Simulated scan of single mutants.
Amino acid sequence: MIRLGALAVGLLFVVNVLWGAIAPREATSPDMTKELHKHPKHMEWAHNGPGNLGVFGTFDRAQLQRGFQVYKEVCAACHSINRVAFRDLADLGYSEAQIKTISAEYEVAAIDSNGEPTTRKATGADKFPLVYANEAAARAAQNGANPPDLSLMTKARPDGTNYVYSLLTGYSDDVPKGWTKPDSLYYNPYFHSVNIAMPPPLAADGQVTYSDGSPATTDQYAKDVSAFLTWTAEPKLENRKETGMAMILFLIIMTGLGYLSYRKVWADIKKA
């Protein structure tokens, strides 16, 4: 009986395997993510120089200040730049008095004279405080989403500056046919999964008022804040370029001197 039972079980297993191999399968919906996902738009940036060669470009200080304004008035409601210190804003052209005024608008953690936790006004030496105390608090406030810190965002994404600009300007209500979008998400083909939890942060023209007369448009906002976030990720970009150019010039001069030395040393030998 045991052998017959084992044989029956074996036959049943074989039948199931064969049926799985030959049975018609239900049609599955194709994964449209790769098809819908778009690469970032290619834009010209001052810090990349002419033709986006990335060699001679420098940051546009006026654009960086506008980008900081957009971050402060729009993005800072959810996203931190905790790797940036207030005194670093001097690189954007802000004076010491302006930095003191800006930092005083923020509260940072401190310890009072009794050793108890408290808060105080930030100074230039402090870093921009976190928007949320921890990830749990962020998810609780953002319906389960955890807004990332933007300090290094343009370094964390391929073609980061163009990615940020494309993402901010890439929201669309025209959802392709066959694509499923939950009501709590938004369609943006520049986001890796196409559906994104972040609502369009730059909703309309006139959202931020510039004092320098620059166009108050969503496109301009996106350009300015993308440039600013490039600076937060690479604040020493210009110094690195200057060092690189100095080294290239040094190597060219040394190559020339080496060639002249070669001609001088071997001149008599060649004649012989």
Rank of each mutant, 00 (worst) to 15 (best):
T218F: 00
F228Q: 07
L249Q: 12
F59R: 00
Y186Q: 07
S184K: 14
D173M: 06
G93P: 13
R157H: 09
G51N: 08
A141G: 02
L36Y: 10
M32Q: 14
P129F: 12
P200Y: 01
Q65D: 02
Y171S: 05
N195L: 05
D31C: 12
P176T: 12
L251F: 15
L202H: 11
T154K: 01
P176F: 09
V225W: 02
R263D: 13
S113Q: 11
A216E: 12
G206P: 10
S166F: 04
A62R: 11
F128M: 12
L237F: 15
D173S: 14
D183V: 09
P129H: 11
M32R: 15
Y187H: 08
A76N: 09
T209V: 04
N239Y: 13
A46H: 14
F228G: 00
V17E: 07
I248P: 00
G256C: 13
H39Q: 12
Q69H: 07
G10V: 12
Q63Y: 02
L229K: 01
T232F: 07
K34L: 14
A145R: 10
T101A: 15
S226H: 07
L36G: 08
F68E: 13
H47R: 01
A6E: 08
A6W: 10
A23N: 05
P147E: 05
K72H: 13
V108M: 05
I99Y: 12
A227H: 01
T33H: 07
E135R: 11
T209C: 03
Y187F: 15
T118L: 14
D60H: 13
T123E: 03
G10M: 11
D205K: 09
H42K: 12
E107Q: 15
A141R: 05
K271G: 04
W179Y: 15
F228A: 03
L257Y: 09
A197P: 10
F228L: 03
A8T: 14
C78S: 10
L249D: 08
R87P: 00
A267H: 15
T243S: 08
G124Y: 07
G51M: 01
G213W: 11
E35A: 15
E96I: 05
D159L: 03
V194C: 03
M245Y: 10
A156K: 11
V14H: 03
V55G: 06
L7M: 11
T58G: 11
K181N: 09
A272M: 08
Q69A: 01
G115M: 03
Q63M: 13
F250G: 08
D88Y: 04
W266R: 15
E35M: 10
T28R: 15
Y171Q: 05
R25G: 02
D126M: 04
L152W: 07
K241N: 00
V15Y: 05
W19D: 00
D112P: 04
A197I: 02
M198T: 13
D212S: 07
G256K: 01
V55Y: 02
M32E: 12
V17T: 09
H39D: 14
D268V: 04
E242C: 00
T28D: 01
E234C: 06
D183G: 03
G54A: 14
V164D: 03
T243A: 10
A137E: 15
T209M: 00
T232E: 06
A216R: 08
Y71C: 01
K181R: 11
L4H: 07
G124F: 02
D212R: 08
D268P: 08
A141K: 14
A8L: 15
E26D: 12
L202D: 09
F56C: 01
R139D: 03
F128S: 10
A97L: 04
R139C: 00
L150D: 05
A110T: 12
W266P: 02
